[in-house]
Simulated scan of single mutants.
Amino acid sequence: MDDSAVSLRAESGQGTDGGAPLGNTAKSSPPSPQAKRADRYEGLGYARFVLSRHARQLKPNAMAGDVYRTVDCRYVRRDRTVGVHFSAVHQGAHYSNLATCGSVWACPVCCALIQQRRRVELAQLIEWAYANDYRPLMVTFTFPHTAFDTLEDLMAKQKQAFEFLRKGSPWDKFKKRYGYGGLVRSLELTHGENGWHPHTHEIWLIRDLSPIEEVAFVEFVRERWLKVCERVGLVTEDKRFAFMLHAVDVRFGVSQSDYLAKQDASRAWGADREVATSTSKSGRASGVHPHEFLIRRAKGDSARYLDYVHAMKGRAQLFWSHGLKARVGVEDVTDEVLADESLEPADLLGLLSADQWSLVRRRRKRAQLLDVAETGDWLQVLRFLKSIGWDAYA
């Protein structure tokens, strides 16, 4: 069994560190609530904590204060105690008084929280658009790349291309012709046989178009994207034909309930989900998300992950046109705020002492303790602590 498999088993209560699996923490503890949630957390909560631990192991502790804030995320205490909270409304549990990094790129745990909350904003955007006589569409932009291209170079050229795309009188006339009312762009990044693959999904707001207008619309966007990509060096003459076939995809009249063609292993994506949760996608034919490096840990994956963290630092995953959030009525909230679970209304079940939190970390039971806390019973949490080695009288 490889290290990743051992880590997943350890974090999910099947490990070799002496902790008992959930449902067997004490004879008087009912196993059914935890057992019912086991599959869900094996694939989501547990895995995210495992990935965050792998990320922490990759990053030099000496640099934890800057690029590597993920080193401390949901691991280092910000106070003497760690709060354990339960929300009866959401049937979920979370910690407080822990450091959070708020990185949608580097941190698997913060990424999941931020994206799900951004999804609500995008659903609000689409609902507002239809109510105000716009017809939202989705445009996906890609471009050729090779295994020899560096991520920083591709990102710089992509940024230039988008700046040129939306400059000049042709673009101004285009916006006026189609009643363009703004956009939201989501940046997605995968890695495959041909190296890094940055691409975007954008929701554009336009007026309702006839079939003939839709054809002219797509033709303009494709030709203009080709022109700006040639200008910044993202496409060469020999790749123009393939570029025109694959580099731009336009889907008209999207809604939050539409299911798009893009799917991962078992999930279909609506327009709002496609944009907001793009970085959560795992393996697919065109490549894997960089978080996959933390799972497979093949030769070169550590270096690739660190390159990724450096290149994406400071970049926004979601970009809204100037003034669009205010028009839609969406509050401008940072990723750091969205990643802070302690801001959500929830009941405080109890406080973990510094020694108790140290034990939970050492036993790799951060996710499993939250699963127990979802019973809403602090006594169950105390029994769980005892099952992993806590002695209140030591």
Rank of each mutant, 00 (worst) to 15 (best):
V372T: 12
W196K: 12
S353P: 15
V139L: 05
S29R: 06
L226F: 10
R48D: 15
R240A: 00
R37N: 09
A20Y: 07
P31N: 05
G168R: 07
M155Y: 06
R327D: 06
I203Q: 06
Y68M: 11
S103L: 04
K325T: 02
R304V: 08
P60M: 03
R69W: 07
A93F: 06
R117Q: 13
R80Q: 14
S280K: 11
V104T: 13
G314S: 03
A10C: 08
L359A: 15
K36A: 06
S52R: 15
A47R: 15
A303D: 14
L234F: 03
T279R: 07
L209H: 11
G182D: 05
T146L: 02
E374R: 12
F162Q: 04
F241Y: 07
S387K: 06
R40A: 02
E11K: 02
A298I: 02
P60T: 08
P290W: 00
Y305W: 10
M155K: 13
S96C: 07
R296K: 08
G18Q: 05
W196Y: 12
A242D: 08
V254P: 05
Q368D: 13
Y393I: 12
R273H: 06
F162N: 04
D39R: 08
Q124H: 09
Q14T: 04
L98I: 09
W390Q: 11
Y130K: 10
V120M: 07
V328Q: 02
V333E: 07
H289R: 11
R78P: 03
V337T: 15
F86G: 01
Y178Q: 07
L245T: 07
R273P: 00
K167C: 03
A303V: 14
K281G: 05
A64F: 02
P144K: 10
A129K: 08
K175Y: 01
D2L: 05
E202T: 13
R80E: 15
C110G: 08
K365H: 13
H291T: 12
K325C: 03
A123K: 14
Q368A: 14
E152L: 14
A242Q: 10
D301K: 05
V330F: 01
A99Y: 05
R74W: 04
E213C: 12
S257M: 02
N24P: 01
A247R: 14
F293I: 09
S4M: 09
D377E: 13
A129F: 00
C111L: 09
D249R: 09
V6P: 00
V235P: 04
R135I: 12
D249T: 05
R117P: 01
T236N: 04
W128C: 04
R56E: 03
Q34P: 02
R297K: 09
